[in-house]
Design a binder for these strands. Structure first.
Lengths: 216, 216
DNA sequence: GTCTATATGTTGATAGAC
DNA sequence: GTCTATCAACATATAGAC
């Protein structure tokens, strides 16, 4: 089926470069990681990364997409399942569908953890556009589903709470806090915390407050 | 009172270097910001930063400490006030004392926002030790106060929730989410969300669950 | 596809005149 | 305290042999 000599060891270098770049970007940051270090770690040549990716920026993009795409696919699959089975998934179920795939992937691929950390603080120059592009669908689908589960929240509050939740989740993924390393422990903890926050009573809007008596 | 010629323009360069470094570190990251860029922005000389700070690492440390120290001072002052007035501050009050100073400082000094972003994702080499050192007292005081307000939570869960809260707060500070830019709007929103999360029922511990009947 | 060799620029740090 | 000049080390990127 495969051509006589191409398939295996030829693309091997490319994969090793991705692995090495992920490891080093995560460990020392993007700007501080030289392509020499990447190629050395991958046991490849300095020119190889230019041949396979064209530039350091494109290598970075490939590294991110490889890890983040499957997380979002799993999230959307879980959301599809929730919406298919009966109508109106609970807040807890939605939060878990959003959070669990990310945390489980992160615990399986330690590189993802620190990669997400980079996504958070790396100057938006290169990463910002990638961020928007990769997460747009997930954000839209989940905020819409949460809006249906929490009809009493105005859109602005709901979007803010979604942002709070992502922030807390990112803290766990990047290990910036005293969190259990076992996903089986931390995921329920986080879901419990975030669901309670999501379901908190909305702020009393100034206009609709005290409707019991009108001042003439 | 002041000595004839020293006080003003002599320390001026040092302050300009701090301002410039803060601006550039925030904009492009630490590793990507050269000291040449810093001294150019400060309209100073390449050697000036070595004269005043000794190295790039010490400059970084000075930049962080200048901004973060006052935030923690304000937090601890508010906590002191809460604990002085009556016993047992509420969860909501504690969360607000933790969160409001940071968000208000960040909205007044835009540089702090992106500086906090750096603290989050910069490889822990240099920043990690600084982080531990600067936030240790705040963490200890607030988790202790929260533990008194939430006696039903075990220590591990409480620390984890504290970490979730910091993560959500950092997301707001670094503008990584659809948050209102007006602190008067976002702070109450965040406090409401986090307080509800803090007060969420604890996970049923496997050991103490179903204590209604003992199996022989 | 992978390598060596090299062109060209930038970095952090220092020495020493003023 | 501030400057110019200069260092060795390292960066990205490319050219061309194999």
């Amino acid at each position: 089926m495969a051509s006589p000599e191409s398939s295996n060891s030829l693309t091997d270098t490319k994969a090793r470069l991705l692995d090495a770049a992920e490891r080093l970007f995560a460990r020392a940051g993007i700007a501080a990681t030289s392509m020499r270090a990447v190629t050395a770690e991958a046991e490849a040549n300095v020119a190889a990364v230019h041949y396979h990716f064209g530039s350091k920026g494109e290598l970075l993009r490939a590294v991110f997409e490889r890890r983040i795409a499957p997380v979002n696919e799993e999230r959307l699959k879980r959301l599809d399942d929730l919406e298919a089975a009966g109508r109106g998934p609970s807040v807890d179920a939605l939060v878990e569908a959003l959070v669990r795939p990310a945390l489980e992937f992160a615990s399986r691929h330690p590189g993802l953890s620190e990669l997400v950390g980079l996504l958070q603080a790396e100057p938006a120059d290169e990463v910002g556009a990638l961020f928007e592009e990769v997460f747009a669908e997930t954000i839209e689908r989940f905020t819409a589903a949460l809006a249906r589960a929490l009809p009493e929240l105005d859109e602005e509050t709901l979007h803010a709470r979604y942002g709070f939740a992502i922030g807390a989740m990112v803290a766990v993924i990047t290990h910036r806090g005293p969190f259990a390393t076992d996903p089986a422990k931390v995921i329920p903890d986080l879901v419990r915390f975030l669901s309670a926050g999501m379901k908190a009573p909305a702020a009393p809007s100034i206009a609709s407050a005290v409707p019991t008596r009108e001042t003439p």
